[in-house]
Design a binder for these strands. Sequence first.
DNA 1: ATATGTGAACGAGTTCACAGCG
DNA 2: CGCTGTGAACTCGTTCACATAT
Lengths: 294, 294
Amino acid sequence: MVAERGRRSGAGAAQKRSRPPAKSGAPDADNAPTAEMPAVVATTATTPDPEVRARSIPEAAVARLAVYLRVLSAMAEQGATTVSSEELSTAAGVNSAKLRKDLSYLGSYGTRGVGYEVEVLVGHIERTLGLTRQHKVAVAGIGNLGHALANYGGFPGRGFPVEALFDIDPDLVGVPVGGLPVSHLDDIPRVCTERQISIGVIATPPTAAQSVCDRLVAGGVQCILNFAPVVLQVPEHVEVRKVDLAVELQILSFHVARRADDAELAASAVNGKPGSAKARKGKAVAGNGAVIPS
Amino acid sequence: MVAERGRRSGAGAAQKRSRPPAKSGAPDADNAPTAEMPAVVATTATTPDPEVRARSIPEAAVARLAVYLRVLSAMAEQGATTVSSEELSTAAGVNSAKLRKDLSYLGSYGTRGVGYEVEVLVGHIERTLGLTRQHKVAVAGIGNLGHALANYGGFPGRGFPVEALFDIDPDLVGVPVGGLPVSHLDDIPRVCTERQISIGVIATPPTAAQSVCDRLVAGGVQCILNFAPVVLQVPEHVEVRKVDLAVELQILSFHVARRADDAELAASAVNGKPGSAKARKGKAVAGNGAVIPS
DNA sequence: ATATGTGAACGAGTTCACAGCG
DNA sequence: CGCTGTGAACTCGTTCACATAT
């Protein structure tokens, strides 16, 4: 079944809206975990529990936290010590309400009437994202893309050291790339286990992706970042994120096409239908770069 | 049926809420349709509108259409002529209800009791995604990643030919990469205009990204795929999609951390609170690999 | 009988607006 | 007052279940 019962969204208050026809055939499914209390902390028993933070943060908010973190780090480097939600949100390309809501998921660390302390916020976000531990990365498939990834040296910022490279090409095995020798795909399970790799990056051709994925899983990898254009099959305890260039381009293509259609329509928008005159509204916030997609 | 031209006009119920002026960047979606009545959509149901297909497809669905397209192409190559929603959805890693809903956005092209004709479906999806036209691509920043992108030759499948490369390094300008000579960043506007580039890919260091972006826009580019970890500022008619490696990894990191916390909790789950024993559930999505939305 | 197409319930995520602290 | 924190309204997206067509 498609279970799902995951995160209860932020704010408590299970406030349903007036629901017209109470027909409902068989809604059932997840039993709401008595979510009644006002979200914040208290959630778990008596402890303000400094450790419970992470729980129940909407997936989308997590992605934005990473962005806030980057912006905050940049601000810190420039000597800023405090920021208001307005400043930070603008720099991150979201609106201030969303930003405050996102930050509220990790507790109340701002000062009313003032703003947030940069250092403090950075610390809390890092902790929430689990950046206090190191996550060793392995890259499989040392082609053009894999090469690029391997050469990143330690991945974005630090905290994600690349500690293993794999490829199937015999001419490549043993050769150091970015200072690290390439191992054979067959050794993925062993090497990953030995080096305690927790994140595997798949940059192989699509045909090899699933098999590589299986081996990564066998090697104890917990998360996979997949650049190959295939839908991976993984056991449920493994988290997969996919970055698909073709999909990205096609989404952009869709928007170009839509826009072109609108232009056409605009031409014939002279007649009746007052409502249709305005045609569709523009998209939303410019730079808000919708998180990545899928 | 949902739509007509973008937002439908306010249906009955004069419910709206006070709407302040909308300060800075707020998108301000104006009139809210008050989700009060059963969306029976009598609202504007009067439009059979034959050609309007593409309009009003949820962003998320668009991304999946691209995936369906890939799967369908693969099936076609293997000689399949029809597919059921069940087969296709499994192959694409979604559930059949979602698949059918997605396909319904582009019209009814299935045969009840049978399924869909592969060829027909491919055609409709391609048309909807605007893949019938070619979208010329330019890549700016020929470092490791840019190099990899340039060497893709024609991007994913075809339909996205790379027709311009840019970099700021004098030693690189003029040198052919993947068969195409690199031009200087300063020439972006001119070259993009001349070659009718419609999609720009930014693979430069973060510091250069905004400036490159501005030049791409000046060159008439309509869409931008941004690999640089910065929030780009663009005029509203330009569509931006962002692919951020650091963010992806940090999201994965978050999940690792959450899982670890759960493990800890599980250990101390021996005591009271019968309900809390189960601690949180794993993620959802059964079979397929998570497919995280975004 | 079987599988599509879709209205409507459900739930996730976003925005609003204001209570309340500093 | 100013700005955070947040309940509640609203919108978007997903899932359900069944009428409908073949």
